[in-house]
Design a binder for these strands. Structure first.
Lengths: 220, 220
DNA sequence: AGAATAGTGTCTGTCAGACAGTATCGC
DNA sequence: GCGATACTGTCTGACAGACACTATTCT
């Protein structure tokens, strides 16, 4: 078996699942129930199973389903992490994926097969994480921020119907800075992915028009 | 052994090595000397060897050295390709890297351990390629183009000293379209990575000032 | 002088940032 | 009316595209 490890790397998939709540941007972490790094917080992840998985992306989707009970359509590869030292079990490859969860489905996360799950601020993780997962979160966060900087709309983070102000708050949460309202609206008005509805969100003030994402929209 | 294949994927690294010659942008392909896909053209690549390689990127660097005798400092991961069907030897993962070769080192390519090597136009590959390498070239090309579109300067493609016109021709070769000279110069004048020299390239016409890349520059 | 290429000046439209203004609700 | 939030108008500076212009070499 030790001979095997010299020939075949262990292959993992890890997922950085982001959402936005009242506190801002959040990333899902799970507390490890097994060695190695037992008790430490980590990104949800698992071993690639060639007999079960059609691809690495499919493996990531399976892991999200079995470990935390969520079904995410939109997964994007971030990059790989590899080497002999990143996991005590041996030479390993981890392929990191980034995923976004709509803010009205935050509570849908179950905790199958893990000790605990929690949403944490990716800008200030309070824990010392397992393996190289602090690095992984940083890489996923940067990918997400770069896309939003390039005017991609993170509509996967929004509920079915949302106001433009809510969308702006979401982009601000991702970037970690506030934006000018008029500038933001002017920029996104041209987007094909944004569909106006006839509905309004009522509140204590002037009602805000509701929008929805175009079906089949991409986060690009 | 067949049991093994159900547990461990084969892990490959492939490299799309680009250069620019008089014809425009080129990508390096090698003709396979072994089964599977013997005789077909493919990107240079090889199996990850955990006992030799410190990381996937190191593996890519080793493959470039042993197969075609070039030593490339700058490697960038593009993405992974995976699944049961992409290689007849079994469930596999291929991690694709992109690399750039200076135009004055084009002839440095040797052909160790492969039947033949050739530089081909990545926009119009004439051959039917091995595995999913046509897809891989497309992905690497898009990465390269996107960086140049975002005003990154592909200085790794340039020789030690070069004129601004030569740099523009290189960018045009990458993008596959021509650019306005004044616009191009205005844009790159602000770049920290571009260092003016006192030397000039003499020719049949007005001499052109020579530039060099700042040492430690990044392609971003 | 003329050809050829290096390099610059300028007009125009577009868009981001900043900020103030108007509109429409609940109370 | 007042507070609060939605939404819009406008000024300004930066920059891209287009294109014409000047500069410097060789023959």
């Amino acid at each position: 078996m030790s001979k095997l490890k010299e020939l075949y790397p262990l292959t993992f998939v890890d997922v950085a699942l982001f959402c936005v709540d009242e506190q801002g941007l959040r990333v899902l972490l799970v507390q490890r129930a097994l060695e190695p790094e037992i008790g430490r917080w980590a990104l949800p992840g698992g071993i690639l199973k060639p007999d079960l998985d059609a691809s690495l992306e499919a493996a990531a989707r399976r892991v999200l389903g079995t470990k935390i009970g969520v079904d995410i359509s939109h997964l994007e590869e971030v990059r790989t992490f590899s080497g002999a030292d990143r996991d005590p079990r041996g030479w390993s490859v981890a392929v990191l994926y980034c995923a976004l969860l709509p803010r009205d489905q935050i509570d849908a996360v179950a905790k199958n097969k893990v000790a605990a799950v929690d949403w944490l601020d990716p800008f200030h993780i309070g824990h010392r994480l397992a393996f190289d997962h602090a690095l992984q979160i940083e890489a996923a966060l940067r990918l997400l921020q770069n896309k939003v900087k390039r005017n991609a709309l993170p509509l996967h983070l929004m509920p079915e119907l949302f106001t433009l102000t809510a969308l702006q708050r979401t982009c601000e949460a991702v970037l970690g800075r506030s934006m000018d309202k008029a500038v933001f609206r002017r920029r996104i008005k041209g987007s094909e992915d944004l569909v106006e509805t006839e509905e309004f969100e009522l509140g204590r003030q002037r009602p805000a028009q509701l929008y929805r994402a175009r079906s089949g929209f991409l986060f690009e």
